[in-house]
């Protein structure tokens, strides 16, 4: 009997003791799968320099990250899209004041299998393809083969970005909704009729695919996201900022990490990981919103 009692007691003690310690000094970062590799790398370098700090980075998609911030489950939400009005309302009703920091710039890449003869498309054609209005490659000058679409799931910020800026309507229900950027790349590699989209950091050095050049309109000039200069000067039509959201003026721990991300060293890591450093206007923007 004593044995049973002691087991009960120790279980109870364990339960109570884990609660308060689990969150001590740990900064939780959650959200976009486009940003996860970059922020993980940033946090590793940061923790090496500050051994007393603990930063934990997880993915799940921009929607998941913002929902976690609103529900008080993380202190930084990674997002590859802007926060939606609905989400702001929800946050305000819970006493959370989401503030935006721009940490990097991404060029959204559209990729096809390397056996595909198509190398260029307009924004309008891409929209029609992903809305399901163009269903055969011959309609855009390719072979007579049906197009198979690869996209992300609705918790992805990239999904929302493409929906708002490109398809401006619903995705074709035939689109395969893949569980992350890597799966889209694997799918496009194996499928000669595929088209998919991922953040630029995922396509550098990948074989078996090629990245499409995109122009704003028919007859316009086509630009490739692989060309750094065209992203920086805004020629490539699908460049987009990547964000982190925090609750109000961030606490010291959080602020320190974000300051590191925005420092020249942090921005160097951004470039090494395949994204682009933030331009002057965004630096000003960050100063205005969170003072870093």
């Amino acid at each position: 009997m004593k044995k049973i009692l002691s087991i009960f007691m120790s279980v109870a003690v364990l339960c109570f003791s884990f609660g308060p310690y689990a969150h001590a000094k740990m900064v939780q970062v959650k959200g976009s799968d486009t940003l996860i590799n970059l922020v993980q790398k940033l946090s590793e370098v940061y923790m090496e320099k500050n051994p007393d700090k603990v930063i934990s980075v997880t993915g799940g998609g921009s929607g998941t990250g913002i929902a976690a911030l609103v529900n008080g489950k993380c202190s930084i939400a990674n997002a590859s899209r802007l926060i939606k009005t609905k989400e702001v309302d929800m946050a305000v009703s819970r006493g959370v004041d989401p503030k935006k920091v721009i940490v990097a710039v991404d060029g959204l890449c559209f990729l096809v299998n390397s056996s595909n003869v198509i190398t260029q498309l307009t924004v309008d054609q891409l929209g029609k393809i992903f809305r399901g209005e163009i269903t055969n490659w011959k309609e855009v000058g390719g072979d007579d083969k049906p197009i198979s679409l690869y996209g992300r799931q609705s918790n992805s910020g990239t999904y929302d970005f493409v929906m708002e800026f490109l398809t401006k309507g619903d995705f074709s229900p035939k689109m395969r909704q893949m569980n992350g950027n890597a799966q889209i790349i694997e799918g496009v590699k194996a499928d000669p009729t595929a088209i998919g989209y991922v953040g630029i950091a995922y396509v550098k050095g990948v074989e078996g695919i090629h990245v499409l050049e995109v122009s704003r309109a028919v007859g316009g000039k086509y630009f490739s996201p692989m060309n750094d200069a065209d992203i920086k000067n805004g020629n490539y039509p699908l460049a987009r900022p990547l964000y982190q959201y925090v609750d109000g003026m961030p606490a010291a721990d959080v602020k320190d990490f974000i300051a590191f991300e925005l420092s020249p060293e942090g921005q160097n890591i951004v470039k090494e990981e395949g994204f682009f450093e933030i331009p002057e206007e965004y630096i000003k923007n960050n100063k205005a919103t969170v003072g870093i």
Binding site: G60, G61, S62, G63, T64, I66, A67, Q153, S154, N155, S172, P173, K174, M175, R176, Q177
Partner: peptide
Amino acid sequence: APALPTSYLDPVRTMTATIAIELGE
């Protein structure tokens, strides 16, 4: 893919997968 499947060679999205994908966000 959320479209209505017509054969076993079509992609499908089950009820469990839908909940898993969407409940997080």
